[in-house]
Design a binder for these strands. Structure first.
Lengths: 144, 144
DNA sequence: GTGCCTTCATTGCATATGTAATGAACCGGA
DNA sequence: TCCGGTTCATTACATATGCAATGAAGGCAC
């Protein structure tokens, strides 16, 4: 078996290459790490969201969430508060600066992603989309 | 836009989840890192292979290759030598222990991968395969 | 051959990351 | 109310990683 034609390797290489393209945008142009980018994405999309929900929806662990949200707060992109209902948790909301930063970063990231996907045919994109969805189900529920 | 339905995120999450399944096998069961696994894969497949070729074919940089091959040598899985033609390079060959370790790890990794892919239909696997190949081309050559 | 530039692997160092330890807060039962 | 167990975020520490610096080796011009 050649490494280059081994499916798991091909998947990893393509995903890394695609991700690198986007990190170049939100990382280099906007100074966000991958974790910060994902968290900002979720926090922007919610009125307010707590730490448990963040960890669950990003596949990040609690330490990563704690560190990345701390950095986002230091940069003035989000606010952290402690909910009275459960003082162990943290509640996050986006700031106006965070919102505008995200909006600019998102449009550039989307443009870069579309530039890549735009080099594929409609049929290829559909195949990829369906294949990925199927793989997602399969990983969560393998055959024995 | 919801993070969970954003294509780049879906791709990254599925690739990570799939990779984690395999790391569990070659990492936990055989004590190999991802870099070591990839390098052993290539070294096993070649009579002998040099450092430049390894870096090129794994998308690892030279520091990663240097460190991972050092660990593989420490474990007795590969041998490193200096070619007389160009004494700056390193030449790697697999040891009998390396070969048997790889063989066992590979069959288990393959089995795990097949257990996941086996939960997909033939059509889904074909779609994924073609979609990935197309994305690979597109990443290397985006539309503008 | 000698000097100078390039190309390698390796090493050093600063930073990031993962895992275990800590401590705050909560909950349920006595 | 108090105590023990549980669930959180955070911190500490050891290790990994990325990047720049180093030094060996090669190649070319002279």
């Amino acid at each position: 078996m050649q490494l280059e034609s081994f499916f798991p390797y091909r998947l990893a290489v393509v995903a890394e290459a695609f991700s690198r393209q986007l990190v170049e945008v939100y990382g280099h142009d906007h100074g966000l790490t991958r974790e910060e980018w994902r968290l900002l994405f979720l926090i922007e999309g919610a009125e307010e969201i707590n730490s448990l929900e963040l960890a669950r929806r990003t596949t990040l662990d609690k330490v990563q969430v704690s560190r990345a949200t701390q950095r986002l707060e230091d940069k003035g992109l989000i606010l952290r508060s402690i909910p009275a209902e459960d003082r162990r948790l943290r509640l996050y909301t986006i700031t106006p600066l965070g919102r505008s930063t995200f909006a600019r970063a998102f449009s550039q990231v989307e443009a870069r992603a579309n530039a890549i996907l735009g080099a594929m045919t409609e049929a290829e994109r559909a195949a990829l989309d369906q294949g990925l969805a199927a793989l997602h189900r399969a990983v969560a529920n393998p055959a024995i």
